[in-house]
Write a protein that binds this DNA or RNA. Sequence first.
RNA 1: GCCUGGGUGGCGGAAUGGUAGACGCAAGAGACUUAAAAUCUCUCGAGGAUUACCUCGUGCGGGUUCGAGUCCCGCCCCAGGCACCA
Length: 823
Amino acid sequence: MNQDNNQKGNKSYKKPYYVLDMFSYPSGEGLHMGHVKVYTASDIYARHKRMKGYEVLHPTGFDSFGLPAEQYAIKNKVNPTISTKKNSDNFLRQMKDLKLSYDYDNVTSTTDPEFYKWTQWIFKQLYKKGLAYQSHEPINWCPSCKTGLANEDLEGNLCERCGSVVEKRPLRQWVLKITEYADRLIDDLDTLPEWKDWIKDLQRNWIGRSEGSEIDFKLVSQRKDLSFVERDSIGLVGYGTSIETELKNSYENKFTIFTTRADTLFGCTYTVLAPEHNLVSELIKNNIIDNRDEVLKYIAETKNKTDIDRSSEGKEKRGVRLEGVLAVNPANQEEVPVYIADYVLPDYGTGAIMAVPAHDGRDREFAEKYNIAIKEVMQNVSDDKTDSSEEVLINSEEFDGLSSEDAKNKITEKVKGKVVKKYKLRDWVFARQRYWGEPFPIVFAVNEDGSTDYNKPYLVSDVELPVKLPLVESYEPTGTGESPLADIEEFINIYGYIDDNNEFLSCDKTDKRAKIFKRESNTMPQWAGSSWYWLRFLDPHNNTEMFSRERIEKYPEVDIYLGGVEHATRHLIYGRFWYKFLYDIGIVPNIEPFKRLETVGLVLGEGGVKMSKRLGNIINPDDIIREYGVDVTRMYVMFMSPFDGSSAWNAKSLSGMKRFLDRVQSLKNKIGNPCKNVNMMDQTIKKVGEDIELLKFNTAISQLMIALNEFEENGLSLDEYQKFLQLLAPFAPVTFEKLSKDYNMEESWPEYDINKIENNQVTIAVQIAGKMRGTFEIDRDKEDEEVVSKLKEQDIYNKYITSQNIEPKKIIVVRNKIVNVVI
RNA sequence: GCCUGGGUGGCGGAAUGGUAGACGCAAGAGACUUAAAAUCUCUCGAGGAUUACCUCGUGCGGGUUCGAGUCCCGCCCCAGGCACCA
């Protein structure tokens, strides 16, 4: 409350405040009820802040790159620019219908070249800092969308957008090194006290940091013929010599495992490599494995298995032993078998594990299946057997009795391992083989034979930004893993030269310096624009800078950011990553972009099911506004549940809100003497203001209803009437405008008198033996003794205590609230 | 399996450890009306007494406390996220 007092005193200075809601993808369907809920909430919040004297920045715009527009374009042969414009205009029309108080003069869109110029510029900076690189590793390929996808775009093993099973496909990609920011993305969550803990958990979980050790295991060959020779060397003359020679040259190698439980190293009874592990193919190539065919068969099976196949097998752990080799446990030099198994993932940790079946459930399951030894090395010393944190080492001589944590370090040190951190988060696959996205500011040199030399990329000079998307006739992806842009000769082939900054500048073909280059044909993913859009919102018409210094200093961070939870692990991680990067290169002043984050709950269809086209239960905001008016629509959506809760649409409840606003219209007739209940207005001002701050719009509205009930019954003064209208204004702007115009009212938030909030009389509840028995009235803040003596005058006390000849053991008085008689 | 969030009337939902069910919807009764709609008044957790009283009641079982929807322990169920992460 205290920080809100800035409207007093210096009138000319208004404290800046940035209220942002997640901008929308302008679909052909128009706004849905979910939009109405978030946007109305942020609008009420913004209006309230404005009334309290803040200089509120409340912008909107569109995230208009993306597949649906492109698919529409493919089908109808129209450039997505056109359909996108049409849809955005419809969205804006609806937003205005809803009386959302955005700054409509500064609406911008990610597809605006003046916008994506800066998206390209940021990419350039990432590239310059070594945070953008090309990769040919197998990536997730959606055969239906015909494009590569980031891990974040998958649901299980399915394309998040179309539900197709994705394949792994090696494809040239641009990748951003988000993993380099993984620690900061986790650690800096601690600097965000206004974020909900569960959202932070979601992000931590997604990034998935685990701290552990990397330990080398020696791999030695153990040819079957060795044991054969040893057994038979006495008898088989002439055969032994050659084998001995071969043994001397025998294969020796090593591999690195990752573990978070280095303390259990002594309990390792086998090791597992991912079937895809490089060492496995090397062993096969060098003919070290005795059961080569079996191993190859298993590897092939793994390749063909999708994640769905695997889980349908109940995640039973299967694997194949690599016959002929053994791994040496560096802690005790024990030789243990080596397996390959698909429960070890190639792209996490080092793709190899030490298995400790005694202390890991998965390893135990596997060991039991293949009859591998299980060796206990930890003992629980806690009284509470469920507390696994109090384990000490046993069976290791050297380290006996050490606690788990100490043992991790000591053992890692002993075996010359490394303490390392690993993440689930992968680098961000930042290229799509599609038309409707930001082109990369990249060209490639051309080989003598005319082919593109992808090893020689050059950044396009700033003066040539934006690299504009060309107009094309066909938007269909090639399907060969290239974007449709690859076929547009006029776009792809470009003459120019490399300037002093080692950047590409185009020039005329006839220019002496002119050489042919080829443009990058991939485009950026839809997440690119949304990773920084709120910064462009500061200054969308600035055609020389991303935003002016003055603007970023005024609004260095978003004060409150409202949107859907579904963005917690993608947009909000990408956005934080880019913002941190921009901080590192001195563009923005903070380490975190969003000071307070609030997530909206779902608006479900009647009966509590999701609204969907298939079920035909979609409620169209336009229809509701037409039938009931804007204010009823806004207030009903706010009243139906708390902001972060989800609840079902109920057409009948909607008419209750209409009743409320109708009654407000006729409240004017009750103006006269001040309300008998002198506290009502002040209580309401306090409650509504506080609830808006907490986004508890449902209880704010209920307080307005309580006030209305009171005023209808007991009348109200003109002053009370005007204050009531002001409180209503952020919720029901149309009603406010209509009713306030007779009074020449200022649109400011009324103040309350804290001394008037509380009644002089309070109701004390009487509890006898812990049960409620009645109440009595007494002056506020009376001493406990007075409360007790008043209590003893009560009939209820007589009935339960005096007349029963009971002597209370104790009487507990809670000031202004309750007395409890303990008997 | 792991991590979150949640479970309160017929429904949406209120309750800094202090009168459970605010506010609203639906339902019932009544008033107005030729009638209906709208509007207004009253009732509305369950059971029993039927005047103003008692008993039970916030997913289940324990516990802490003068007092628990709220805190602790153990379960069950629902929703979301992650998912063989070593």
